[in-house]
Amino acid sequence: MTGSRRTVIVGGLAMSGLNLLGITASRATERALDNLTEPARGRDLFYFTHWWGYQLVPNIAASSITDYEGLALEYGFFRGRRDAAGRLAYMESWTRDRTDVDLATEIDGQPLGDRKIDYRDNDIATQQVRTFVASKSGSEDWREVPYAETEGQGRFILLRLYAPLDDDGPDSGRPALSAELVDQYISEKAHYSYAADGTLSKIVSYRRDNGFTPVEFVP
């Protein structure tokens, strides 16, 4: 994903309910934090969609571990890293805020609503979403990119299908095409430290809602 932080959206887009200026400021803060706290990206970081448990350190649901490709239809997800002993050492919570984009919005001269989404076996869980990011120049032009290029914090347009609510309800019928402006960002991250005997010794968490001020918890 490009690193551009756009606060102006092309006409026809529904604006996000987020305070865009606030987001921009928070991201500036976070970029600084990233350098200090986020482990180097690499194979040791893995995505997952479900954690469980009532302890201070969440348990990762093993079956929900996936690559970024597997997150295409998720509304939020997590990323973690284990230490050499296999304990969770770091965890990020990722949020995808979504607002509608008018299907009449044209990209490269073609309305979003005219584009097709492929899926197999009449199952929209198999759909191949389409994604668009703003051009590097920072203009208001959008270009289609492979979904994989949306990884990381940023903003993109997601074109996808939704299933009707149920077969006999008012929304019954064919899957509905939808275009959404997705703001994808880290809302929270935490570092877990362990004592020599293996017990949890400290948690340092950073939350977007308090400006990523580090907060320490000692069990």
Binding site: E74, Y75, G76, S93, R96
Partner: peptide, 15 residues
């Protein structure tokens, strides 16, 4: 818990 807020359950985004 991760994802918790006064108005969002930790499983808020689960589909």
């Amino acid at each position: 818990y991760a994802g918790a807020s006064p108005t969002t359950d930790p499983y808020h985004t689960k589909s």
